[in-house]
Computed example of a mutant assay.
Amino acid sequence: MPNYYLHAENAKQALEALAKGLSCVRLSTDLNISERDFSLNDQGLMLDEANQLSVDELKFIVKKTQKIFLCHDGELDPLEDRSAGYYKLVPTAGSPLLEISGVKMHISKGTDPFISASEMAQQAVRTGDRVLDCCGGLGYAAIAAHRLGAREVLSIELSPEVMALRAQNPWSNDLEKEGITQLQGSSYELIGTMLNNSFDSVIHDPPRFSLAGELYSEEFYSEIFRVLRRNGRLFHYTGNPHVIRKGSGFVDGVIRRLKSAGFKNVEKVDRLMGVSAQK
């Protein structure tokens, strides 16, 4: 059975079409990847024979502006996981973003999460590269690296909850393509099992420092340096700079530790809230 993804905006479109007495409405039910026409009648929105949404259900979805609902096999469920914290996919005008316990895990203001992840990949990845994607999230940077011509991408994600949401996200489908390998585990631990000089580029997009300080340590940066080939490139998302103590910027600390680990050409990339560097 097909999956249909509904959120406040397209539920609102369906209700507006119903109010006008229209017999069909053009919607995206795959989170802005494509559009098609769906039938309307007195009962509501007809997705297919097994999946029909009543007016009341559409009104319920409209109220939940920060949620995405999956309609499948006659059931309507939010794309979220409350088993350990609160993980959910949030709708945007483009690709959905990942939110964990109220914290958005993507650059989304004035852009699209997939576009910003693609721009991060462009900072480091070249055609033919073997790429390490640390803290892969929904896999947007790994997919972007693959599309940029990387011959192989290894994407690591610690959270099984994130990987479960990724598996339900249409924008993450390309992770199944040949040339991309997904690993569930700790980037901090797994990088120690990797060979010296085995990657051409690394994309490092860790959770915020308070949640995973070890991923901002000189020890971890030294491991990234070790697995990179000569002249290999790193892009490291750091998030909004903030001050740890008076006169010491957080990003300045990241830059200092990267240089101590051996990196050269270490530069802030303000628009992407990160740092680029080279071995």
Rank of each mutant, 00 (worst) to 15 (best):
D42Q: 15
L228H: 02
L6V: 15
L47M: 08
A212H: 00
P78R: 01
T127Y: 13
S95T: 08
L18S: 08
V62R: 00
S217M: 03
L18P: 11
G102C: 10
P170E: 02
R208D: 14
T127Q: 14
R257Y: 00
F69D: 07
D30S: 07
A19S: 15
V62N: 02
E161K: 06
E218D: 12
L79H: 05
F250R: 04
I33T: 09
S28Y: 10
L138Q: 02
E157L: 05
Y140P: 00
Y237L: 04
G239W: 10
P91R: 03
V266D: 07
S83T: 14
G139R: 00
L158R: 09
S198M: 09
A121W: 03
A84Q: 14
E176G: 14
A124Y: 12
V103S: 14
V227M: 10
P2G: 03
E267M: 05
G253A: 04
V103N: 14
E152S: 12
K264T: 13
V55A: 06
E75A: 07
E223T: 00
T65D: 11
N10Y: 00
I156A: 04
Y86P: 05
S28T: 05
I61S: 04
H7G: 09
S116D: 12
F235C: 02
M1A: 11
S248G: 01
V25Q: 09
R126M: 09
G44F: 06
Y4P: 06
E267K: 14
D77M: 06
N51I: 10
Q168G: 06
E178H: 05
L70A: 12
L89F: 09
D112E: 01
L183P: 03
T127M: 13
L79F: 09
L45H: 11
F38D: 13
S54F: 12
R208Q: 13
F69L: 05
R229T: 14
F250T: 07
V125T: 11
R151M: 10
Q43I: 08
T111A: 06
S186V: 04
D200W: 01
G94E: 02
K67G: 05
V153R: 03
K279A: 04
P113Q: 10
G94V: 02
P113L: 12
P207C: 00
V125S: 11
S159Q: 08
E214W: 00
S248M: 15
G232C: 10
E80F: 01
P96D: 06
P78E: 15
E219D: 13
V251I: 15
A167R: 08
L258C: 07
Q13T: 11
A19F: 01
F225K: 10
G21P: 15
K104P: 09
G139A: 00
L79R: 10
S95L: 06
L272Y: 07
Q122T: 05
G21Y: 06
D133P: 09
L98C: 12
K64C: 12
A141R: 00
Q66S: 15
A8Y: 11
M46L: 15
I100F: 15
F235K: 01
Q123I: 03
E99G: 08
M163L: 15
K67R: 14
I61G: 05
A261L: 05
F60Y: 10
I191P: 02
K20P: 06
R130Q: 13
C24P: 00
D81N: 15
E214V: 00
T193H: 05
G262P: 10
L15A: 13
T238E: 11
E119S: 11
F250Y: 10
